[in-house]
Nucleic acid binder design. Sequence first.
DNA 1: TGTAAACTCTATACTTGGTATAGAGTCAAG
DNA 2: CTTGACTCTATACCAAGTATAGAGTTTACA
Lengths: 140, 140
Amino acid sequence: MKIGLLAAKTGLSIQTIRFYERKSLLAAPERTASNYRSYSEDALKQLLFIKQCRALDMTIEEIKLVLETRANPENSCENVNTTIDKHVDDIEHRIAELKVLQETLISIRSACDHDKKVKECGVLHQLDSFAEVCSSSTEN
Amino acid sequence: MKIGLLAAKTGLSIQTIRFYERKSLLAAPERTASNYRSYSEDALKQLLFIKQCRALDMTIEEIKLVLETRANPENSCENVNTTIDKHVDDIEHRIAELKVLQETLISIRSACDHDKKVKECGVLHQLDSFAEVCSSSTEN
DNA sequence: TGTAAACTCTATACTTGGTATAGAGTCAAG
DNA sequence: CTTGACTCTATACCAAGTATAGAGTTTACA
């Protein structure tokens, strides 16, 4: 099958498929006489696997590692599990960071309830205050 | 003050300061006879303000908007508040997405408790299953 | 058979928020 | 007077794609 059909079947864009090939996530396929890429069913399955991994927010390097491991059925799957575990950890950290951020933003936002002028805006004053504190502390 | 001192005072790198200038977040400063950038205290305050906004994960475009609004004390602060509100919303969405992701990953991870071989690894089978489902459904 | 639309090819530039480098010029201390 | 620290511009790089130009190919329809 040609790249357009593969793109339609996977829901990925043509450029993304070529991008994955460049990144060695997907083996370079056969070419027709006119130099068009010609894909097998295996390529389709591989792409769907990759898409699933990307949906789990794994990086291309992580996916590459998983694919390499998967390629040999006798391999230990240890580093696949390690990759997933690390990934779970990363996301946990990110969620924690975003929660702190969220609270900070909500607290700042509460400083200006109504539509005021810039000079009276509590939000802007809050954003400023950090700058002032740091500025004076560096003047020592 | 020269850029190295400004970098030390703000905790930003020299390249980042020049980058903000290129992005018009920071006005181009005076230059010395030898073409070195020469910054005022106001530039320091502005940079700390920007740093605070970046710590809140605001984009450069968002910060630019806030800075422009802030520049005129008689302006309404409405769009500053709108920016913060939108930002809170964005983060909320992102947290929700990450939570779903986290659950999916943990569920997948639970499919392989011990260090097995690739062919027996429940994690890999889970990652595969999505591909198989999609693959067969596109064969209709 | 002609031709126009739809498809594919490569190569390149753009995005965000910086970071890192090369190669050149400048300044201060010993 | 030279060495080291500083600064300058310009350029390339990162992730994970997206978008474009300009050329060649295939398919459909008249």
